[in-house]
Design a protein around this nucleic acid. Sequence first.
DNA 1: CGCGAGCTTGACGTTGTTCAACTAGAGTGG
DNA 2: CCACTCTAGTTGAACAACGTCAAGCTCGCG
Lengths: 229, 229
Amino acid sequence: MRFSKKINCDSCILKCDIYTTLNKDKPGQQLFNPLHAHFKKHDVICKQGTEVTHALFLVKGSAKLYIEGLNHKNITLYILKPPAYIGLLCFFDKPEYSYSVAALEESEVCFIELSLVKKLYVENHDLLLSLNNAFGKSVAAIMKKIISLNQKQARGRFAENLIYLSEMHGSAKFHLGMTRKEVGEMIAISEENAVRLFTEFSKENIISLKGQEIEILDAALLKKINEVG
Amino acid sequence: MRFSKKINCDSCILKCDIYTTLNKDKPGQQLFNPLHAHFKKHDVICKQGTEVTHALFLVKGSAKLYIEGLNHKNITLYILKPPAYIGLLCFFDKPEYSYSVAALEESEVCFIELSLVKKLYVENHDLLLSLNNAFGKSVAAIMKKIISLNQKQARGRFAENLIYLSEMHGSAKFHLGMTRKEVGEMIAISEENAVRLFTEFSKENIISLKGQEIEILDAALLKKINEVG
DNA sequence: CGCGAGCTTGACGTTGTTCAACTAGAGTGG
DNA sequence: CCACTCTAGTTGAACAACGTCAAGCTCGCG
């Protein structure tokens, strides 16, 4: 991880709500000095159990949000793509992160003083609602995940995850960008079973598979497998 | 469920944050007309998928917060005791509930206009922080639950749940107040396995069991079973 | 007295984990 | 340029954990 302090928000490709809010009230001024950080693949962006000191905003790249479980086994809840509040769920007066986030590829993250954000969302109605809205969506996603993990069997979860990844990449053909083990962590199965499901689905001509290059061939069947569990 | 509209908050046994906030600004005035509702055991207080119209506040009794899953199988995330915001997780601009809540015993719930709460927490710093704080705790609890459900086996989850219930009742000896099936839903196992675990733990003298009357005999062992999974 | 809900127990099959061995490809240093 | 090694991926077999089905029990209540 590497900081580049002297980045000006005005030149940022993405205008986050915080910048917009500040800029709306007092346009033209650079009112805060966010730390702009660069993360390499597999770098940990925030760590479960550590103190929440900044609001984190994913500007570029992608990252996985996961919980660190027992015996070093993790469960990945979802993948973050810009624009995304990374610290969102823990952001509100919770002293420490209840999850971790790690970069899935080269990523850029903006660090904003927590005190500033708190001051802002207390003063600014729209910002608060927009944060809360994002918040509600995360909670709904987690609820869905709990059901999926506990009531579907591996084939159904695997199908669901392929659909999720495909939608995430916006194409039926995509580069996986993670190991079989990491795929397993997304749906709480072992690495070996992840491999088995990949080859199984490939043999059944549901997907085509060349290493990390995936293409969904039979989206309808995939959807069906997802639904029946 | 039965409403009793003419209840005055001043006589309420529990002063919720919303009342306190309103009263602090303009003491002595009855500024809002909450609906005070009475629920019987098993009554559904709010239903997954329906619109969020009021902030709900549990004043008396207890309730379970659960997600309705596939094939009418539910997962109970946790139990609510007063004082508790029932609608909390969905409260912030999320149009519909992502979970359900049902009374576990005779309970009383206060219904407060959502628009009033929103107006209040935008204006009032302390209320906002207190809501957010409660929020963060819920999220942390859910994260812990996900790990427990997916990485511990039934015995460990069962032990954990006994400890949880005992702490909830504030005693090693307590009345269960729910069926074996409902206990199963708390830890995502079948009714049959819930029964088996009860008898198993009873035979091993970890608990004493007479119908719904439970007493924890060996708390240390229970804790150990919980920890090793 | 009989009915039904909740509880209990046994048998059986499926699912998924774990262990272990093996393969393929990418780097690395001599 | 070739061994060496390391990581990721792959496959098989044995095993344990749970769910499901089926049957029977018990208690409270109409």
